[in-house]
Design a protein around this nucleic acid. Structure first.
Length: 444
RNA sequence: GUGGGUGUAGCUCAGCUGGUAGAGCACUGGGUUGUGGUCCCAGGUGCCGCGGGUUCAAGUCCCGUCACUCACCCCA
């Protein structure tokens, strides 16, 4: 094929899709900064050993190498592209700990790469938007509430399908498993994590075989996993299971605080619940864990996740506990864009196309565009002095709402091509209605 | 990494048991001597993913390969 084919897992948007994406990114930036989070961008590569150290071994890390490596390249020093933003951020904190002020609040919006088999909602190159707070030595629990709040506020400002933030707490479930005498709480959690995918009998079997529980223990674990509520009432139901353990009490208390703390952000587009089955795959979480489902797109899994990690970064003497949450920009947006559920009012930034009567008078048209731009109105000049019908169509195809005409180089008129209404106008004074000034992002 | 599906015009696809490639949309021109969207008329378009095999004959059957895609796994 002469024409290059798209590369699976490396999505590229149309100009319209990019307008949507940039609007989303702008919204995150504005909201995060409103809450006082500083922007950080880390390099795309990390030493391979760093990348493989934290997470699971089978992370599909892309390795970086020079095509013509020479003796100057240390064969022992390999680099890989980062597969999330938390690990590089932990490294960044350690590297700059002397210069940063703690608790350090940062947001980070960048591409990450994972060499997994692509499918809808799962890509090899994708954007994540992270907010985290990291402390020096310790980090007050109220930040667990805060990161959920700031993310919820950003998401609520976007025309996305309804989102449900599901919260759980590792201390709660681990304490519970310990309280019933489970020898390997981590194994129990791995099994419970599959509860949505496997039939109940299979989950019970796995609890008996893999997690080495007895029948009564398995029943209580399943009973815990079934608990969920939109308010703090889940706590009573946990207590009713009659398990007691100090860690359980602590986790219960924390989860109540998060659920109640975020309750104020509930709306038609955003709900919050305590879901005691949420486990999260990553093992570095130590307390609060978050997941987020998008209505109608449950098959994507979580589009926004995170949690509390008490010791992701540590230099031996000091540990830097953190809590953060990450929105999967590409995961959430790509399916919405491809289905037309999220789109922009036009495919270009241009608000006004200045028509050209003939090439000799192009300078007059250019002058109009200059005047409009000087007042912040995005304008472009028609590419050719074609028939006016064609010039209008040029604008129509792109969704440009206004076409500007000059008669005899003197009379200025601007036409709203949606209504057909055409009025005389002054390039130094005319302004489009506010909603038409820039493309808007709308639910399709 | 494992298992399935699909590759034909710019896009969505049709092409029955092998007989020499089609539709709609889009695009271009005209109807409308410069103001679009509707309507009418006309027009162009294809290494039928790639390589090999069977056959008088392959888009169609067989093998291989690549790409895309879905599910599992894992996760944003």
């Amino acid at each position: 094929m002469a024409r290059p084919a798209p590369l699976s897992g490396f999505p590229e948007w149309s100009p319209t899709g990019r307008i949507v994406e940039q609007h989303v990114l702008d919204t995150f930036r504005r909201t995060f900064e409103l809450w006082g989070f500083a922007s950080v961008e880390t390099r795309a590569v990390e030493p391979l050993e760093e990348l493989l150290r934290k997470g699971e071994i089978d992370k599909e890390v892309y390795v970086l190498r020079r095509l013509h490596a020479t003796a100057d390249d240390d064969p022992g020093r390999q680099f890989g592209l980062h597969y999330d933003l938390t690990v590089p951020f932990a490294r960044y904190v350690l590297e700059n700990s002397a210069k940063l002020h703690f608790p350090f609040r940062r947001y980070q919006i960048q591409k990450v790469w994972r060499g997994e088999r692509p499918q809808e909602g799962r890509y090899r190159e994708f954007l994540q938007a992270d907010v985290d707070v990291v402390g020096n030595g310790d980090l007050p629990f109220h930040h667990d509430v805060e990161v959920a709040q700031v993310m919820a506020e950003a998401l609520a400002a976007l025309p996305l399908p309804r989102l449900q933030l599901q919260v759980n707490n590792r201390k709660l479930v681990e304490g519970f498993y310990r309280g019933i005498g489970a020898d390997d709480p981590a194994a129990v959690m791995r099994v419970i994590d599959k509860i949505d995918k496997l039939p109940p009998e299979t989950v019970r079997d796995l609890l008996l075989t893999e997690a080495k529980l007895d029948d009564a223990q398995a029943s209580r674990c399943l009973a815990l996993a079934e608990i969920s509520s939109f308010d703090a009432s889940f706590a009573d139901r946990v207590m009713a299971l009659g398990v007691s353990d100090p860690l359980l009490e602590e986790g219960l208390d924390e989860l109540v605080q998060v659920v109640e703390g975020v309750a104020g952000l509930r709306g038609e587009r955003f709900t919050v619940s305590a879901d005691l089955r949420i486990a999260r795959g990553l093992d570095y979480y130590t307390g609060t864990v978050y997941e987020t489902r998008m209505a109608g797109f449950e098959h994507l899994g979580s589009v926004c996740s995170g949690g509390r990690y008490d010791s992701l970064a540590s230099d031996g003497s000091t540990s830097y506990p953190g809590v953060g949450i990450s929105f999967g920009v590409t995961r959430a947006l790509a399916p919405l864009l491809s289905r037309g559920l999220l789109t922009a009012t036009r495919s270009v930034p241009t608000a006004v196309l200045v028509a050209v009567s003939d090439e000799d008078s192009r300078p007059a048209s250019v002058a109009v565009a200059v005047a409009l731009r000087s007042r912040g109105i995005p304008a472009e000049v028609a590419p050719a002095a074609a028939k006016f019908g064609k010039q209008i169509r040029h604008a129509d195809r792109r969704g440009i709402p206004f076409v500007w005409f000059l008669r005899d180089g003197e009379t200025h008129e601007v036409k709203d091509i949606r209504s057909g209404e055409q009025v005389t106008a002054d390039p130094a004074a005319w302004t489009p209605p506010a909603p038409d000034l820039h493309p808007r992002v709308v639910a399709g």
